[in-house]
């Protein structure tokens, strides 16, 4: 099975202040997008696998996010929890020349 991709424009980069995250609703999916102070962008599932904490409300630093409810830590680039116990879904997100955030979602071919 090959997969095609779908590109979705989320809006201007300024939606997300540096060092923070925001949750987006895309086709019924909740996805958190993070913008680090170093200028990197990450996207993961929005709900913490522990007890559905809102990850976009967490503390971000380097490529780590800390869930605001009980402090689980996740690597934003791989989605891995530390210490390893489960993994977040991650997505690819990039910036256009016009500073628009674009999310790339894989779409399995029917």
């Amino acid at each position: 099975m090959t997969a095609t991709e779908m590109k979705i424009t989320l809006g201007p980069l300024s939606l997300i202040p540096p060092g923070e995250g925001r949750s987006f609703e895309i086709a019924g999916e909740r996805i958190a997008v993070f913008r680090t102070r170093g200028g990197r962008l990450f996207a993961t599932q929005a709900d913490c696998p522990h007890r559905n904490g809102p990850l976009a409300d967490g503390l971000v630093g380097g490529s780590t996010v800390i869930c605001p409810l009980h402090g689980w830590k996740f690597d934003l680039s791989t989605g891995a929890a530390a210490p390893a116990s489960c993994t977040l879904k991650t997505y690819s997100v990039s910036l256009t020349d016009q500073e628009q955030l674009v999310l790339t979602l894989p779409v399995p071919e029917p």
Binding site: S14, L15, I16, R22, S23, F24, E25
Partner: peptide, 13 residues
């Protein structure tokens, strides 16, 4: 503080 208080931003496709 535009998006500070939105818990979920809608995306219009």
């Amino acid at each position: 503080r535009a998006t500070e208080f939105s818990s979920l931003l809608p995306v219009i496709q």
